[in-house]
Amino acid sequence: MFKILKYSFYDLTRSRWLYIYGAFYLLLSASLLWLGGGLSKAIISLMNIILVLVPLIATMFGVMYYYNSREFTELLLAQPIRRSHIFFGQYLGVACSLAISLLLGVGLPFVLYGIFSSSEIWNFSILLLVGLFLSFIFSAIAFFIALRNENRIKGFGLAILVWLFFAVIYDGLFLLALSMFSDYPLERFAIGASLFNPIDLSRILILLKLDISALMGYTGAVIQNFMGTVLGMACSLGVLLLWVALPAWGIKRVAVRKDF
């Protein structure tokens, strides 16, 4: 599996999109830090971008890489290699290269700015951690969708739809539900509903760290009570892990049963 990871990674490092992606973060973080003024402001701005962009790019990369490496996959399938290793190797290759782009692109400017000697270090770490999680989650979902759909157009469309759902539509429905049932206590529902969307969960994790949950009103306070604790934090991270594991399990299931 690690050999396949290595080759997928090597293959991806030749693609200029990965560099463009990394360079974009580099430029963005640097300009937010030096032109926008201040670490915590930069972190909040970056959060809003990372929460939307990381899932989108991970989705597109995952789908594209799967379809573009069909030849490589077919070659590997005839070799004495476990099927699940082939697909996990490729998936991890995509996810790791995206994660490294993000890590370097966002990390370097912050390190140069002096994040290590600042009190914002924890907030920044949680932002990066969440970014890494989202890379792994959405590339796994994308791989799973691509694996299930032979038709590229259909696979691409579905993957983008899933991203759109989690990034935009889900929030809309969530807000709609909150305003429709505003006469009822919705705190538990709010916590529960946010667990089912990795992007929302990530956002809450960062916002709580940033201590601006007061902006979220009473619901925010309840969420703070739950997730602000060590237990809540562990829970949310656990759920994020589950969000990686679930599509990964799906990849394995489909890969083992698929005809080539």
Partner: peptide, 22 residues
């Protein structure tokens, strides 16, 4: 079924030669 190691004993020439282009 579910095995993979036996493929070590098989050399296979696919019908259509498709390789990673890069």
């Amino acid at each position: 079924k579910g095995g993979w190691a036996y493929r070590r004993q098989i050399d296979y020439l696919p019908q259509i030669a498709r390789f990673p282009e890069n």
